[in-house]
């Protein structure tokens, strides 16, 4: 029990030390006021929108084909 406590408190302590040392490891998403996160969010929305429009486009193409063969 005591050993576990020491282990966890040690872990906790090391995490706090990490936070205090402000270790940044290739953390692109947090740099520059986290603007890259905004860019990523917007790109995700854009990609989602385009995939959606593209599938509608495909559906209409299929409908057109079915209609012309009738």
């Amino acid at each position: 029990m005591n050993k576990l406590f020491i282990l966890f408190s040690g872990l906790f302590f090391s995490m706090r030390v990490n936070a205090q040392n402000n270790v940044e490891m290739a953390d692109v998403m947090r740099s520059n006021g986290k603007i890259y996160t905004v860019v990523a969010v917007c790109l995700t929305i854009l990609i989602g929108l385009f995939i959606y429009v593209f599938t509608i486009d495909r559906k209409v193409s299929r409908l057109e084909k079915e209609n012309s063969t009738k």
Binding site: I35, Y36, V38, V39, C42, L43, L46, F50, F54, D57
Partner: peptide, 19 residues
């Protein structure tokens, strides 16, 4: 032109926020 549209808008977001 549909692909061009996507590329231009992706460029708009990336360059528009970062430049």
């Amino acid at each position: 032109w549909k692909i061009l549209s996507f590329l231009l808008l992706a460029y708009t977001i990336i360059a528009g926020f970062l430049l």
